[in-house]
Nucleic acid binder design. Structure first.
Lengths: 235, 235
DNA sequence: AAAATAATAACGAACGTTCGCTTTTTTCTG
DNA sequence: CAGAAAAAAGCGAACGTTCGTTATTATTTT
């Protein structure tokens, strides 16, 4: 019962981080107490302090160990597709797929931003910087099919565009999300690849091409009734 | 000294909301105490409770009164431009301009999401639903120049894409942001209008067209050194 | 036997909220 | 317009609870 197994203390430490992660995600940092962490880790309050000196130390450990880059970067690094379009499609689907499976991933960063004003972000980036650069190489290998945008612009627009898929998922009124249907991601990818303008169209099939004009006209016909029905479905 | 002026209690109530808003933005909901709110509103702790029954009531009042839609929707409703492209450009510049001037706008929604799990979002949308629909009409009037995407997809991609401009502004390592330069927004708009693919290019000048390939190759030459220099600039 | 880990109990401080009282403001009335 | 009556607003202290943290003591693991 030794050798490859973790030492007792390391197991407990991992249990504390597990408990803290779950609670932070559900209630935020200030909304979570040390007593809750201790109880969920099957430990007494005092016992926790044998492994972490403070509550904030627990947060930093959680942040460094569970930050979303850790989960997202391998997905992007191994994305498939020879052409730029196929690669972007695959990478976007992987990214959003993972984000929607694990809605907590970005949550961690938002807690850091909101409750700490990003005070630990420099520490975080110092921790993951070595993993960032190989990612650039993957993108640059497919650069031939892309317009000559700068690498930071590309990275930021790609991540931002599909991160926003997650954010709007949470922020949008349910009734609007329902109108969007299940192929919303395909429509997002399409916009990212080809833009919203109609000028250079005729690039093949367009998913998400619905009867939206008639919807809008319906709104114009009787805006008040639409507003009221929308209002009621919000609640 | 009466008539058009506010009653005394309403002034104080507004002062409480001002104070609470500032503190919530800086420290989050759970990170802010009623005593801090009282002090910043030049009031005693007990006095606050003459105007709000609880701390959470203050939060809801702040959320309903200061939510970003209130500031953003008039900007979009009065955006100019006859063609779809001109309109999108103008609307995006207005949106991001306002977001970067007032970095707190989205913060409010994130606090709601993180510290309350969005418990008040239905209330919020019930509150602003009547303002949402006129916005749809504005977009549908310019629909001719856009590809036939559904209205919700258009709304979500537009807001999401440029909201993400704000989010990545806060999340990205400073060294990457610096690489992007000041014309990053123009590049964002361009991507939203025309996409990232090179297939339908030759649409005129392209801002942000830098020597990014050489940068990437520099990284490939000596990845470790780049990583270390990047690491050091993070801190 | 030594070192690491856990439990117990307690600390002072801060939390949201309530209370009784005084002062100010508004409204009613002559 | 004055002044009393009513209502609203503000104060200061205290409530009971929970917070993060820390000693001290007991129990396991090495």
């Amino acid at each position: 019962m030794s050798g490859e197994s973790l030492r007792k203390g390391e197991q407990t430490q991992a249990r504390i981080l597990d408990a803290a992660y779950d609670l932070f995600m559900a209630q935020g940092y200030h909304g979570t107490s040390m007593r809750q962490i201790a109880e969920r880790a099957d430990l007494t309050l005092g016992g926790v302090y044998n492994h972490f000196a403070s509550k904030e130390d627990i947060w930093v450990a959680v942040l460094l160990e569970r930050h979303p880059y850790r989960a997202v970067m391998p997905l992007l690094r191994t994305a498939e597709g020879d052409t730029a379009e196929a690669f972007v499609r695959n990478a976007a689907q992987r990214l959003v797929g993972e984000l929607s499976k694990r809605k907590d991933l970005l949550h961690l960063m938002f807690i850091e931003l909101i409750e700490f004003n990003g005070a630990h972000i420099p520490t975080l980036y110092a921790h993951i910087a070595p993993e960032l650069l190989p990612l650039f190489d993957v993108v640059s290998a497919r650069a031939a099919g892309l317009r000559p945008l700068s690498l930071p612009v590309l990275a930021r627009s790609f991540l931002g565009f599909f991160f926003s898929y997650y954010v709007t998922e949470a922020l949008m009124p349910p009734v609007l999300r329902a109108l969007m249907g299940d192929d919303a991601l395909d429509a997002f990818i399409d916009i990212y690849l080809h833009g919203v303008l109609a000028d250079g169209v005729a690039r093949g099939e367009l998913q998400g091409a619905t009867t939206w004009r008639s919807e809008a006209e319906m709104h114009r016909e009787n805006p008040l009734e639409s507003a009221q029905s929308a209002t009621s479905s919000f609640c």
